[in-house]
């Protein structure tokens, strides 16, 4: 693996990092009040989005890289023009925003609000009008958490075709809602503690959920069945699925408040690579000085970024050996496939 690019622009802990669809730009948000945009090829900062008044918990970019949406602890979500950083709309909500995400076609956005200060946690869906700046301020649909604060929503995302909303809860439960009607279609619980992240496969037909219980689980969207489980030895804050290679990347580390009592190597602030199908750990990448709060992978699978509690984004471009790595079984499987194609 190549020497990573260190993106130093935030002075507070990172909360989320995200590539746009082409992967040329990297968006990052932190507990500071600004969002940053970077070139993924060289780590140069392109600009910032200024306007929030508190921790920005989440950011997303629409498929055309026209808009960016951010959600913040200041009780607002903002829509930005990606090319110039102009804030064109602000949604005001009743509690802090924990997660925002565009639908795969870019025509809707979901906003997850936190269950604090007497408010019930909700997932709100808004339409995005691409023709004008002003956006409808009433949600198209609201999904309300009915199971009390222990089971509040932590994160959520869109499935393929924007058919379903998949939501992760604080008690380890994952549930699936119809994105048009808001009907609960099913739920399952395979993890013990707070779910910290939910990211989809490139085609959005399956997803990975990380948890503080030191595991990450892979589910399929249609049946909501547990496909794989990856076990680590420290709490996990984020997990993503790599395109091209059959891997998943997990990020986490000993909790921030426990870190002061442990030395650097003991906190295990590493990105961990697991084989997606065999559930086996393949390797680790060290570097951060604090827990990893988010890991994101380039849509073409050529690099990945990690955002740490230490305030740095580390951008790693994969080496050739990464792409060449295969288990023997995989090699034979590929060879037989090749053979079958040729035979046809």
């Amino acid at each position: 693996m190549m020497r990573p690019l260190m993106l130093k622009g935030h002075d507070r802990s990172l909360t989320q990092v995200k590539f746009n669809r082409e992967g040329d730009l990297l968006f990052s948000v932190s507990k500071g009040k600004e969002a940053s945009v970077w070139y993924s090829s060289n780590g140069e900062r392109l600009g910032t989005f200024v306007g929030h008044n508190g921790t920005i918990w989440s950011i997303d970019i629409d498929p055309e890289t026209d808009y960016a949406v951010t959600g913040s602890a200041d009780f607002t979500a903002k829509l930005w023009k990606a090319e110039n950083g102009q804030c064109i709309h602000t949604w005001t909500l009743e509690s802090p925003v924990k997660r925002v995400e565009f639908s795969p076609d870019g025509n809707q956005v979901l906003i997850v609000t936190d269950q604090v200060m007497g408010q019930t946690g909700k997932i709100k869906l808004f339409d995005i009008d691409h023709t004008q700046n002003a956006q409808p301020s009433t949600p198209k649909l609201e999904i309300v958490n009915e199971d009390g604060p222990a089971s509040r929503f932590t994160v959520a995302g869109w499935s393929y075709g924007a058919f379903y909303i998949l939501a992760a809860h604080a008690d380890g439960k994952v549930s699936k809602y119809d994105a048009r009607t808001g009907e609960l279609l099913g739920s399952t619980r395979n993890q013990e503690m707070v779910l910290t992240d939910l990211q989809f496969s490139p085609d959005k037909t399956y997803f990975i959920v990380s948890s503080k219980d030191k595991t990450a689980c892979l589910y399929d969207v249609d049946r909501l069945s547990l496909l794989k489980r990856y076990t680590a030895d420290v709490p996990m804050n984020s997990a993503c699925i790599t395109p091209v290679k059959e891997f998943v990347i997990l990020g986490g580390g000993q909790d921030a408040r426990e870190v002061t009592t442990t030395s650097l190597s003991e906190g295990k602030f590493e990105s961990r690579f697991y084989h997606k199908i065999f559930e086996e750990e393949i390797g680790r990448v060290k570097g951060h000085f604090g827990p990893l709060n988010y890991v994101a992978v380039h849509p073409k699978g050529t690099c990945y970024a990690s955002g740490g509690e230490d305030g740095f984004v580390r951008l790693h471009h994969f080496h050739r050996s990464y792409f060449e790595f295969l288990y023997d079984v995989e090699k034979t499987a590929q060879a037989t496939q090749q053979f079958e194609i040729e035979a046809k």
């Binding site: 393929y160 075709g161 065999f278 499987a333």
Partner: peptide
């Protein structure tokens, strides 16, 4: 491992076929 690999790819084939139907 062989079994896991096969299970995975069979499942993927189904999913891809389904997505094709949906033009996605």
């Amino acid at each position: 491992r062989k079994r896991l690999l096969q299970e995975w790819y069979t499942w993927r084939k189904e999913v891809i076929a389904k997505l094709k139907e949906l033009h996605l």
